[in-house]
Amino acid sequence: MDPTAENQNLSLVEATPEQARILYNSENFKVWILISTKDANDTSNTNESVILSACETFKHKALITLSSGQVQETTCYSIASVFTPPQYRHKGYASTLMKLLSDKLRFEFKATFSFLYSDIGTDFYGRFGWKAYSLTEVRFKVDDNLTTLLENPEMVITIDLSNLDSVIQQDYELIKKEFSKLNKKSLVVLPINPIYNWYFERSKHSSKSNEHPKTLGVKILKEQDINNQELSEGFVIWHHDFQYNKLEILRFRSDSPQTTQLLIQRAKQEASIFKFKQVTLWNPDLRLIDLSKEGEVVEMTTKLPSLAWYVDDDNVDWVLNEKYAWC
């Protein structure tokens, strides 16, 4: 009879670098494996253990605001690459993995919350406390030979490695200021350097050319547009997805349709340089986009953001649920 998770003693342990088969490791990134308790106790033979199920976690900084209005900086974890080898599927191992991992993150690591992105709907992860949030993706088509001249090019500043840190820091300060004004229970995963660097390294790895993208986004200066309407400062940071032939906007800041139009226009021009067919943007304020002219709105059924909130049993608002937090 094939064993199942219910009739075995199982343990969740951190994988060794040899088991994880990774080039680097740090306190912020861990690979977890589900093995038998017997194998877990026999540390001399850990590398020979049968891996029944596995996943990865990434440690992040976040802000939360509670009902009292108090803002706290805290720690959270994202979960990715949940995998069970084919011969061990349908035996409850992935369920056991997620139960043990949730307890470890909540009680041992003292996480305030954890999150993941489900490609298998809402039922499986929902059983273990990860509540699904809606995801709206706006897709902008990119012409093969985009020749439209950028309006007001003097307003657009390229974001690259020379000024990326300052843009991230300014965004961080604005997020903290805006977050302090919220009057309901909320959380935000902070978009800081390690998150972006993970994406930029992915782009380098998947590029088939030795020439890696140098433009990481654009920033709009706060000036007057051609109609003498003040253009609010905004920016986008993007990711060149060579695998799926599209430009993904990771972080989007804009509070006016004029700024949004310039940012999307510049993103489409960047996409056209690499012959990408599409620019994508997650969960924007749709009031800022003229959907009658461009952009297809898609309610996603995959990559669903799912969150386990460990503070209490109440609902919490996920602020800035954008692509940068995906892993």
Rank of each mutant, 00 (worst) to 15 (best):
T147E: 12
Q8P: 07
P191I: 06
N9L: 12
N210I: 11
T46K: 08
F124T: 12
T280R: 01
V279G: 15
T259L: 06
E173K: 13
H205R: 00
L221V: 08
N9V: 08
D290N: 05
D103Y: 10
W326K: 10
P85Y: 14
L101I: 08
K184V: 02
V13S: 04
D171Q: 13
I159F: 04
Y24E: 06
L105C: 09
I289Q: 07
T84L: 01
K59S: 14
N321C: 03
S44L: 08
L63C: 10
P86F: 13
L66Q: 03
S232R: 07
K91D: 01
V142K: 06
D317F: 13
V188E: 00
D312P: 02
Y117D: 05
I289C: 07
V167L: 14
L100Y: 10
Y77N: 02
D144H: 15
I192P: 04
E178T: 12
V138Y: 05
N163V: 11
K104A: 00
F128K: 00
Y77M: 02
N210Y: 15
S81L: 12
T147N: 01
A94K: 11
Q265C: 08
N315I: 08
T65R: 04
Y196Q: 00
E299D: 14
L116G: 03
S78W: 05
R251H: 12
V316G: 03
D241F: 01
I168F: 03
T96I: 11
L105K: 06
T112K: 11
R106A: 12
I168M: 11
T147W: 15
